[in-house]
Design a binder for these strands. Structure first.
Length: 218
DNA sequence: GCGACAG
DNA sequence: ATCTTGTCGC
């Protein structure tokens, strides 16, 4: 667990990201996964408050077991590449309120697939010392080809000849999601878990439900 | 300089 | 992220 202040300047935020990089674990460092969590944040229509919900589902049976929410002020601007400093504080608080700690946490955003290799999923994984996977709905960094059109089809995302994530189709003929390692999980396992968590919808169930609950609460 | 740019 | 119901297509 590597905690640090969130109320920092843009330069300090980048410095913190770089200082956390050597803590990232990119292989499967966990035992049996019995519970998978999903963290998402919904914003007030007008205002500076938002609500973070973290759901916890049984795995692989996918029944909701628990959830936690935390609403608070948003204190950092939306800057691509520094997303953790905007939503991280709320995720931290919601995580502290969980009564069932998930064995792995899915986070709405990128992980290693990031300009400096440390998106919000990786950042929170190191910060909370929990295995994490980044699952984003849109592209941020790296290049890739278009994956096949069927569920399970995928295409690697590259940066400087290295694989940093993958574009994964979770439903036939539907826009794919962007999967990348967060912390303490391999890319192969990340893809496997995301597919096992998404039966019927584009977004993995823990994240989909967290999204629904968060915007109902805010 | 121009375009891209998680939520 | 958010403003928003029905509707067209698989």
């Amino acid at each position: 667990m590597v905690k640090h202040p969130w109320n920092v300047t843009i330069d300090e935020a980048c410095t913190i990201q770089n200082s956390l990089k050597d803590r990232i674990i990119t292989y499967d460092a966990f035992d049996i996964i019995k519970h998978v969590g999903g963290a998402d944040v919904a914003y007030e229509v007008s205002g500076n408050r938002a609500c973070c919900v973290i759901t916890v589902f049984s795995y692989p049976s996918l029944e909701i077991m628990s959830c936690s929410c935390f609403c608070g002020d948003i204190c950092f601007a939306y800057i691509p590449g520094l997303f953790a400093f905007r939503e991280g504080p709320l995720i931290e608080k919601a995580f502290e309120g969980l009564d069932v700690i998930p064995d792995l946490l899915l986070i709405d955003g990128h992980g290693l697939c990031h300009p400096r290799g440390i998106g919000i999923a990786t950042h929170m994984g190191v910060f909370l010392d929990v295995p994490t996977i980044g699952c984003a709905k849109n592209h941020l960094f790296g290049s890739h080809r278009e994956p096949g059109s069927l569920r399970g089809d995928r295409a690697c995302i590259y940066s400087e000849r290295k694989t940093i994530g993958c574009v994964l189709r979770t439903r036939d003929n539907i826009k794919p999601v962007f999967i990348s390692q967060g912390h303490r999980v391999s890319l192969k396992t990340s893809v496997e878990i995301c597919l096992n968590c998404s039966k019927g919808y584009r977004i993995p169930e823990p994240l989909r439900m967290a999204h629904i609950l968060a915007r109902r609460i805010i």
